[in-house]
Computed example of a mutant assay.
Amino acid sequence: MAMELDHECPNCGEKTFYRAASTTLHLGEKVKWHCPDCDYGFVQIDGIDSSAA
């Protein structure tokens, strides 16, 4: 279970996100990721994320 994720933030350009929360759903594991610099966040469910492209 990773606590950090390398992902570019569309708001500020930060490269590291931190795990804010996680739970298990019938679709797979749901993880909320949080940018520490600008408060941008996104959800990832079973490897598919909701972040801006």
Rank of each mutant, 00 (worst) to 15 (best):
residue 28 G to V: 09
residue 28 G to W: 06
residue 2 A to D: 13
residue 39 D to A: 14
residue 33 W to A: 02
residue 15 K to E: 08
residue 52 A to H: 09
residue 24 T to Y: 11
residue 19 R to N: 03
residue 18 Y to Q: 11
residue 38 C to I: 00
residue 46 D to H: 10
residue 41 G to E: 14
residue 53 A to I: 02
residue 25 L to V: 07
residue 25 L to A: 09
residue 9 C to F: 03
residue 43 V to G: 04
residue 33 W to V: 00
residue 53 A to K: 13
residue 33 W to R: 07
residue 37 D to V: 13
residue 40 Y to G: 04
residue 30 K to W: 08
residue 23 T to Q: 13
residue 12 C to G: 01
residue 38 C to S: 05
residue 33 W to P: 04
residue 49 D to V: 02
residue 31 V to Q: 11
residue 23 T to W: 06
residue 5 L to Q: 10
residue 16 T to H: 07
residue 47 G to W: 10
residue 34 H to V: 06
residue 29 E to T: 15
residue 32 K to F: 01
residue 38 C to R: 12
residue 24 T to R: 15
residue 47 G to A: 10
residue 7 H to P: 00
residue 24 T to W: 14
residue 36 P to M: 03
residue 41 G to T: 03
residue 36 P to T: 02
residue 10 P to T: 03
residue 2 A to K: 14
residue 2 A to C: 03
residue 14 E to C: 06
residue 17 F to S: 02
residue 46 D to T: 00
residue 37 D to W: 09
residue 35 C to G: 05
residue 30 K to C: 06
residue 5 L to A: 08
residue 51 S to C: 11
residue 48 I to V: 13
residue 47 G to D: 07
residue 24 T to K: 15
residue 2 A to G: 03
residue 7 H to E: 07
residue 8 E to H: 05
residue 5 L to W: 06
residue 33 W to H: 07
residue 33 W to E: 00
residue 27 L to H: 12
residue 52 A to N: 06
residue 32 K to S: 08
residue 39 D to I: 02
residue 11 N to H: 10
residue 11 N to A: 07
residue 12 C to T: 00
residue 21 A to G: 08
residue 16 T to D: 01
residue 36 P to H: 05
residue 4 E to K: 15
residue 39 D to K: 15
residue 5 L to R: 15
residue 53 A to G: 08
residue 11 N to R: 12
residue 32 K to H: 06
residue 2 A to T: 03
residue 28 G to E: 09
residue 3 M to E: 13
residue 44 Q to D: 12
residue 21 A to K: 14
residue 6 D to A: 14
residue 3 M to D: 11
residue 3 M to V: 05
residue 24 T to P: 04
residue 9 C to H: 02
residue 33 W to T: 02
residue 19 R to T: 03
residue 32 K to D: 04
residue 45 I to W: 00
residue 19 R to S: 04
residue 10 P to S: 01
residue 20 A to T: 01
residue 42 F to A: 01
residue 25 L to M: 13
residue 37 D to Q: 14
residue 28 G to S: 07
residue 11 N to P: 00
residue 45 I to M: 12
residue 43 V to C: 04
residue 49 D to H: 15
residue 47 G to I: 08
residue 46 D to V: 01
residue 14 E to K: 12
residue 14 E to A: 10
